[in-house]
Amino acid sequence: MKSRSRWLRDVRNDLGLRLIAATALLLYVIFIVVPVLMSLHSSFTDENPLQSGSNFIGLANYRTMVHDGELHATVLYTLALALAVTVVANVVGIAFAVLLNRSKLSYRVLRTVAFLPQVVSGVIVGFVWKTILTEDGLLNNALTRLHLVKEPVDWLGTPHMAQLSVGIVVAWVLSGFTTVVYLAALQNIPPELYDASSIDGATSRQQFRMITLRLVAPATTISVTISLITVLKLYDVITVLTSGGPANATESTAQYIVKLAFTSDRFGYASAVAMGLLLLSAVIALSVTSFLRRREIDL
């Protein structure tokens, strides 16, 4: 009798926990799983908000993607941006981490400051950099006053310059993050390794290549993967900085999807492109992670 009442109480009490857990899972299903399936479904239709129903059109949207020049341009730019930004942000991150890896208070303050670009929202980052980079902006103001350039440089006005400028701004945002990740990794390297290699006569360049770079490999995996995914999702910074212009030169695939859905009202096609971006992100994230994981070594 007693064990029965205990059993009942257990079930009742576990029910509360089960209910909360189920709520969480249900919300996840409603706002992630179902939307992905809905996107997949509408990628096979001609859905748009101006007509009431939608027709199943098979793979027509995916065939359109093959000949969509604007899509190809955005994918190419997004991939180039992801690659360039990832390389730059990780090189800067390691360099800053090595520079700041001292325990004195002054260095700790500098570490705190270096992370700031990650804290400020992409919208603010976009506006502040825009103020700096526009043709009559603060950078040209300084450059012309110092007589470093004769004519103001149009950092955001010509396609190539704008592509470069967006890259610099995004790399700037991510460098704050990579610095902190690499700093943490550096602090986990046993100092004895450096002492021992010094005794063996290693130069500091050899130490950097043979010890530092190898032992921060797990941080590299995290930092590279996150840099890539961040650029693939990127929306706010580019939207504020260039709105994808000039002449769509800085339009990312993520922006193109939003434009197709909300400006062109092509829901079906936007969904097909979104499926493409999802596949691309998954392939890149999984392959890069497994490639980098294999290069990690254990202590």
Binding site: Y28, M38, A261
Partner: peptide, 20 residues
Amino acid sequence: LLAAGLMIPPQVVLLPTIHI
């Protein structure tokens, strides 16, 4: 299943989310 949520670009689920 949950790990996928970390990787899915928000643009992919935005339109259906608004529908829901």
